[in-house]
Nucleic acid binder design. Structure first.
Ligand SMILES: [Mn+2]
Ligand SMILES: [Mn+2]
Ligand SMILES: [Zn+2]
Ligand SMILES: [Zn+2]
Lengths: 132, 132
DNA sequence: ACAGCTTTTTAGAATCATTATAAACTACCT
DNA sequence: AGGTAGTTTATAATGATTCTAAAAAGCTGT
């Protein structure tokens, strides 16, 4: 199987559900943005067995912890995830309510001048809000 | 009253509740970050009358629409607001779960190279995640 | 001050995303 | 195959936010 090793290597048992979620997430030609609800629906349409919503939540969080997915910082009461885990940024179209990728090369280098004692920078993410 | 004109000028009737919310938000020496629940609690402690949580929600949203407050882009299922409406950015301390201001001058100029047809940029916000 | 009209406040209910529970099931090891 | 720890599941619980519709308050003209 395509994803059994990936899962096993990060200490996650390659269950049928996890492999199906991997298929939905990582088989696509293009990376994409999603909420857990979106993803669960997508999987139901793809396969004809049912995966519990709780399992999709659990798995998405496990994958995020392993770095297979990341969350997108945005002010919403829903959490948006990204299958593109490379360093990149986002446009947020306020009218269509849609996220659009900004590759790292689409944004000039970002220089954080302030330091916080004893803390190190884990990530730097830019959100560019768009209107008409 | 200190805030009646401000409210009236933006088409909001200066009710007792709105003025009290203004006091809690804008009388502080320093700007701050909050959730609506936080703010409601702060107000209850300050005054000894009660303001409905729904009113605090309504008012915070009205103020945001008028530009007196802004939301902070962060991946959380709670919405964080900021009384600092100037162009600035944020550190997010992942361990303490706390937001820290980055003044505009703490971050070098940000150059967005990509354009989206027919859209204009409303804001550019940076979130810098910190870990130990 | 008062009537008439509009906006606002309010308690409570409804909604919706997310997390917790704990029993049934499955993968893995020997 | 049997034992054990990890996983899935339906369902309940939680918690933030929004909705509702009736009561209260603000405003304008008299
Ligand atoms: Mn992406
Ligand atoms: Mn601030
Ligand atoms: Zn992205
Ligand atoms: Zn701030």
């Amino acid at each position: 199987m395509k994803y059994t090793e990936k899962l096993r290597n990060s200490g996650l048992r390659p269950t049928k559900q996890r492999v199906q979620i991997c298929n939905a997430l990582f088989d696509e030609k293009k990376t994409f943005h999603f909420t857990v609800k979106d993803l669960a629906k997508k999987i139901q349409n793809k396969i004809n067995s049912h995966i519990s919503l709780a399992t999709v939540y659990n798995t998405v969080h496990a994958f995020e912890k392993k770095g297979y997915l990341k969350q997108i910082p945005i002010n919403s009461n829903k959490i948006y995830f990204d299958t593109n885990v490379s360093e990149h940024h986002h446009f947020y179209d306020l009218d269509k309510n849609k996220l659009i990728d900004l590759n790292k090369c689409d944004v000039g280098p970002i220089n954080i001048k302030k330091k916080i004692n004893g803390k190190k920078i884990k990530s730097v993410e830019v959100l560019v809000k768009l209107e008409n």
